[in-house]
Amino acid sequence: MPSNAPLSPTHFVAPLDETPLVAVDKVQVAAKPSNLYLDAWRDMRRRPLFYVSGVIVLLVIVVALFPTLFTQLDPRACALSFSNQGPSAGHPLGYTKQGCDVYARIIFGTRTSLSVGIIVTLLVTVIGIIIGALSGYYGRWIDAVLSRIGDIFFAIPYILAAIVIMSVVAREARSILVLSLAIGIFAWPSTARVLRGQILSVKNSDFVMSAAALGVSHFRILLRHVLPNSIAPVIVITTIGLAGAIVAEATLSFLGIGLPPDVMSWGKDISQAQGDLRNNPMTLIYPSIALSVAVLSFILMGEVLRDALDPKARARR
């Protein structure tokens, strides 16, 4: 028996109780199932910034849906006799030059901003996902054609494109929907590019090949395996893009080529207040604050999502 042979003096053996043997490849799992999205959700709920931005986003949504919960005043009931008056009882933010209540106008303007933000985002995401997914997954000439189209749209800044489109559109035809289309039609290429890049790296995974060997159709593989594994960065840029769309609406309204006169909007209020910047700066500052807070909350939410959806960033903390 070789095991009885004398050991050389340099042969060291650790006592077994110091490192007890574990069965080879023993299954050890945490208490709860986890995958990228479940982990991201758990991670977000540990972050104060998630609650701060989440509360503001929720508030913006509630204000947009039910403005009358926040003010009983009619923002259109303006009287020149109140022009540029300061705050008074029931009118905490004072009056505009036209004698309208600033607070009421901000409350009612929320819906415009959010509507444009959501419609633009939907448009950008749908076009971006379709084009990005098709060009990334199918490659070859489909990719060549779709990517060049994307490049053309990408070369034109979407704000500039929207200005051109809106100045062509007749004044009567202007509406929230038209404005959103004008912004969204040139904003999708970045979404498409990000998704295409992700898909290129995911589609060569072994699990995609396994599914193909099973006989799963290409389209189904794209839909069920490739897209869910590539969509995380799109979620992030979509959230941040929503903030961008709100800014774009304010910009166009500020320039006076955005919305029809009867629609209230923060951008328009800022534009109208600029003449009185010296004698009544608050009429400009209040809608600006509303705009900044709304935009900031969506950007912060995007940051939270980005950190949560990037496992590497999570490990760094």
Partner: peptide, 15 residues
Amino acid sequence: VESGPSLEILQNPQH
């Protein structure tokens, strides 16, 4: 857990 001359460990592993 164990160290020593190579051949001896292979031929006469203890741990």
